[in-house]
Structure formats: C-alpha cells, structure tokens
C-alpha cells in the first residue's frame, strides 16, 4: 500500500470520524430511546443519556409480548430461505458456468427481470397462489417468497464467482471418475466458500428485513416475524417510542453481529466474483 503523510492521515481520520458520526448517530439515538423510561421519552430538551436507563422496554417485549417467538420465526424463515436460495443458486451457477446453455444471455436477463418487479404488483397474485397451495400461515410460504427475491442476485454473484474457478479443476475430478454432483460438492464448493458466504448473507438480510409478504401471508400471531411484530406496535393513537426502539434493536443486533463476523468474506467474495462480472 502506498504511504501517506501524517497530515493526510489526520485529514482522512477527521473525514472518516464525521462520516461515522452521521452513520451511527441514529443508532445511538435508537439505543438511548430504548433504554429510557416512558416518562423521559418526551423530555424537552431531549436527554442524550439518562441516569434512569434500564432494560425495562426489552423485558416487556421479551417477557410480556411474544417477541422471543417472533424472533424464532424470523430466524427459521431467514435460515430456511438462505438454505434454499443458496442451494438453488449453486446448482444454477454451476450449470451456467460449466455447460453450454443455449440462450444463456437471455436467461440471465430473465433472472434480472424477476428482480425488478415492483412488490406492490405481486402482493395479490402471490397471496392467491399461496392460499391455493394451502400455505398461508406457514414458514414455507415466506421461505419461498424470500428465496425467490434473493435468488436472481445470488445466481448472478455465484456465476461471477464460479467463473473464477478454473475448469481444469472440474476436469481433473471427472477424469478421476467423480460424478458432476460429487465434483460440485467435494471440489467446487470448498473453493467457492467465500462466495457462498456472501450470497448467504445477502439472502439472510433480505429475508430478515422483509415486511409486506409477512404482513399478508401470516394471520396467526404465533407465526408473526419480527418485522410484523414491530409494525403492529404502532397503534392508532399511541406509539411507545422506547418499546418501539427496543424492538428495532432486537431486530438489528443479530444482523450486525453476523456481519461483524462475516464481513471479511463479503469483501473477498465480491472481489473474487461479482466485481469482476
């Protein structure tokens, strides 16, 4: 890496810290509000911290309200979509990069096309489809929905990634008598791990944060996911900001932790795969 003068470094740091402040301040305020007792939420001037900070709002959500249940549902749905989407995308990307596919270009266009539809257009037909399949109020309906949104981008990213793995590697395995599936499983997947991690993260994120689909596809409160639980907290006449912000924290922290651990793979995967197209 090229060297920079101390002055430039100082300037850089000032810029970065200002940007960091703007980025993170809303989250600080979310935490601050979540920890305040209800009586201090509307203090003016607003308090940047309070001696009365407590976890009461979190306790209310997790003990008195079924947020633990919502959390589990979100986790099941997100992990399910991630598994399904990564599996399908792996096969598809392998097919695209290892075989001659007629009209591959058109198929990729089709993949991109499915990513572009305005969600609002899909709500009613999708509900109808799921209700005819008897899948309303099931984790499966949400898993299918979210996988379908994540799939095009996943395939696109994995194609880029698989292309960077030399064909000779497949060749060697097949010459040794391995089947295509064995080759994919034993040889290619280990090499593609950063790409798979990146795709999994993207899918998880999409599923974890989605709302409209869970809104229409679940009616049984025991099937609600976090996003629906949060939306239902906004009453007609009353918003308890501390509880709402605590719920937002509960939804945000898992993805933050996950990214903290896996972010390295994300950049590597993008470097190796998608960025090069």
């Amino acid at each position: 890496m090229n060297r920079t003068s101390p002055l430039t470094q100082a300037g850089l740091w000032i810029a970065i810290l200002i940007a960091a402040l703007v980025t993170i301040f809303p989250f600080y305020w979310m935490l601050n509000t979540a920890l305040k007792p209800q009586s201090e939420v509307f203090l003016s001037p607003p308090a940047f911290y309070s001696a009365n900070w407590s976890f009461d709002a979190f306790r209310t959500l997790l003990v008195e309200r079924p947020f633990a249940r919502y959390f589990m549902n979100s986790l099941i749905v997100s992990l399910g979509s991630t598994l399904l989407s990564v599996a399908l995308a792996t096969f598809a990307a392998y097919g695209f990069t290892r075989f001659h596919i007629k009209g591959a270009g058109a198929l990729i266009v089709f993949l991109l096309f499915t990513k572009m539809l305005p969600e609002t257009l899909l709500i009613i037909p999708y509900f109808r489809l799921m209700s005819e399949l008897g899948l309303i109020n099931s984790h499966l309906s949400l898993i299918l929905a979210y996988s379908s949104f994540a799939l095009p981008f996943s395939v696109w990213m994995l194609i880029g990634f698989f292309r960077s793995i030399p064909l000779e590697i497949d060749e060697a395995a097949i010459v040794d008598g391995a089947s295509r599936i064995t080759t994919l499983w034993r040889v290619i997947l280990p090499l593609a791990r950063p790409g798979l991690v990146a795709v999994a993260l993207f899918t998880f994120l999409i599923s974890w944060n989605a709302y409209v689909w869970a809104l229409v596809l679940t009616t049984d409160p025991s099937m609600f996911v976090l996003s629906v639980g949060i939306a239902n907290m906004v009453g007609e006449y009353r918003v308890q900001w501390n509880e709402l912000m605590a719920a937002a924290m509960i939804a945000a922290v898992p993805v933050m932790v996950m990214f903290a651990f896996l972010e390295r793979h994300l950049v590597n995967a993008l470097t190796a795969g998608a960025v090069k197209g």
């Binding site: 399908l88 995308a89 096969f91 598809a92 392998y94 097919g95 695209f96 290892r98 075989f99 001659h100 596919i101 198929l107 089709f110 993949l111 499915t114 539809l117 899909l122 999708y126 489809l129 299918l144 929905a145 996988s147 379908s148 799939l151 095009p152 395939v155």
Partner: peptide
C-alpha cells in the same frame, strides 16, 4: 446443464 438450471428456473417461473 439444463438439469442444474431447472430448479431455479421452474421455481422462479412459479413464484414470479
């Protein structure tokens, strides 16, 4: 190759 693509394409065809 089409077998590898089939699950994804059929799936997207059905849900999208």
């Amino acid at each position: 190759g089409y077998l590898f693509l089939a699950p994804t394409l059929l799936f997207l065809a059905a849900v999208i």
